[in-house]
Design a protein around this nucleic acid. Sequence first.
DNA 1: CCGTGTGGGATTTAGACAGCATGTC
DNA 2: CTAAATCCCACACGG
Length: 820
Amino acid sequence: MEPSSLSGLPAGVGEALEAEGVAELYPPQEAAVDAGVVDGESLVAAVPTASGKTLIAELAMLSSIERGGKALYIVPLRALASEKKAEFERWEEFGVTVGVSTGNYDSDGEWLASRDIIVATSEKVDSLIRNGAPWIDDLTCVVSDEVHLVDDSHRGPTLEVTLAKLRKVNPGLQTVALSATVGNADVIANWLDAELVESDWRPIELRTGVHFGNAINFDDGSQREVPVERGEDQTARLVADALDTEEDGQGGSSLVFVNSRRNAESSARKLGEVTAPRLTGDERDRLRELAEEIRGVSDTDTSEDLADAVEQGSAFHHAGLASEHRSLIEDAFRDRLIKCVSATPTLAAGVNTPARRVIVRDWRRYDGEFGGMKPLDVLEVHQMCGRAGRPGLDPYGEAVLLANDADTREELFDRYVWAEAEPVRSKLAAEPALRTHVLATVASGFAATREGLLSFLDNTLYATQTDDEGRLAAVTDTVLDYLEVNGFVDRDREGGSESLAATGIGHTVSRLYLDPMSAAEILDGLRTVADGADAGADAADGAFVPADGADADPGADGDEPGFTTYTRADDEERDAGAESNEATQSEPPAVTPLGLYHLVSRTPDTYELYLKSGDREEYTEVCYERETEFLGDVPSEYEDVRFEDWLAALKTARLLEDWANEVDEDRIAERYGVGPGDIRGKVDTAEWLLRAAETLARDVEGIDGDVVVQVREARKRLEYGVREELLDLAGVRNVGRKRARRLYEAGIESRADLREADKAVVLGALRGRERTAERILENAGREDPSLDGVDPDRSASAAATAGADADGDGDGQASLGDFG
DNA sequence: CCGTGTGGGATTTAGACAGCATGTC
DNA sequence: CTAAATCCCACACGG
């Protein structure tokens, strides 16, 4: 079937596809057309990665738009949103407009409403529905990329509920779901009332095999000799082999999957010895430039190590990298400049980064709950393998699993090569998931009664999959109790039915996209400040918290009945013993940034930092030293199982405090054992939660107005990464934490000072960077920012960084360090 | 005395979505 | 209940 023979697409699209080189649709694409994708039929396409799924989605969206409609493309990752947007923008010449909406990159609502295609993450779509984005009603086509992620216990329920809502709002909606090949695609199709197209077909041949001893044995029966000498590294040998095998005049790049960040880094270092000797002089030069760029992103050890590896033509990739690092690596790998990337699963499901050869070095990963090394899911390994073979560059792709002995080789064949991916199972019937979605469903008007709620939930994948009819209702009731007790939902039981309505705060929480448990924790903490001596009694009015840590169970996968007991906060207090609570009961604690950072860090919306050995001791000490700063009760060190989590949150809070005290990034990375990406991530999350806290504090009665100001300041200090006295300066564009501190040390303490100050001093403080200084003066609103003929005042830069590296101990003074 | 090598026990362990506007004369 | 690479430190060795 030729693209130009398709009817229903905007004029010229078929021809344009042919011009792109799509002379003939791929078999799965043709099957999708036969199933009616261009005629508005719903469809589930369960086909391998890189087999033309995106074109199926494009055919659906473009034909829908041609009929006067509007399409939404849902992605699982922010990075994919921009990738897809760029891809879809090639249709703009046919009059099709594209917009994106994600947490970081948001276009204004009205502008979005005018776009034909909107690309967004599932959470963002959920949020847009909660906030009543008007264009949701206009959608005629929704595409869900990587739907098999409904299986994810944390984010799957959001996708599931969001699709159910979209379909409810718009009954005629064409739903196109793109899935990896999974065991039960038919169940998904059944749920979405869609046709099913299932295929193993790939445009580029993929051979999957296992290497052991001197050869790779492939699934097609073929064998490739790759002898490994004694003492030689298996992975290195395979990477070298791919590089030395020229196809199209070029050696093949490799992607190595490993099971930890540290392994990724050490693997990249070792493989540099393989790639470096195979680089051309030109490549070496370009890699050196790239390495410099990487060093410029961040001055942490991680960044330095990455740059060192990259100079050798090898790189690592994991979530500890800053996002700029990640895209630099991804781009250079796609450009074949970097020959080999050692990665954690970040690259398996992320943006498109194919390689000739994929090496799955580690097929087991540590899992605390499992109690040891757990074999990866078949689906995950298949996704990794699917990265093998670059369309248009490689004639074939090779995926190789590594075995140390013959038994393992057989096991790997059985477990992964011959195996079908696991069936997808909904994780909706777990408390944390339902807590959020029940509130949102009620708040945004999808249900006004308990029965209505249950009947709405009947449209989810969970409902079509479960054999236990009562379970969803049981968890829903538990969650409703929780929401009612915390004042988010009003229930009215009359006769046989029960009406539900979100309270004012309930609406706010839903719109802020907070986990209701986070909101409860935050409100509880803020109220402690409001009424001082009455704090305990006040908390008892509204704040109930699960006592058994039910939420700390990420494995709640819908199999075990949820088990939660609710305890009044003041009972907790009594149980916990008096020693840690005396201070909070007798007088209102002064609100400090640390207190607020801890408050948001212990919320289920913040991912916990790992407590290393020695951390327990260290943070227990901090806990006592700074006892008065915590908002709410401190769990007892000896009697409360939550103490461990509390300490982990304290570690996060200290990281945030350091950031807000201008501690250098590399120092923080070292002190907390994290990468630059982790720091940015923590700061971002905390900023988001503090903003939400600010809104909550304003909306709720009984919270002191002064608290709102404190929350805002703590948040702004995180946003800019500066101490209080630099807030004004750091608000000027092009002035970050470093420049603000230098200006301040030079005597320029505010935006107003910038407008008045001696230009020579400004220039000196900015180390003689004329262009930068001019831009900054302009942004500060100076009338005549020109620095022509101004000589930098050298003495102004001498004081730079004094006090900038001080350890934060929360009293606003530089201290002598943390070794005392 | 000190740098270097060795061995065994201790330590550590993947990923990543959301909102939203502030200060001034 | 399950692993394995790496780190850390003590200790031995040789110059």
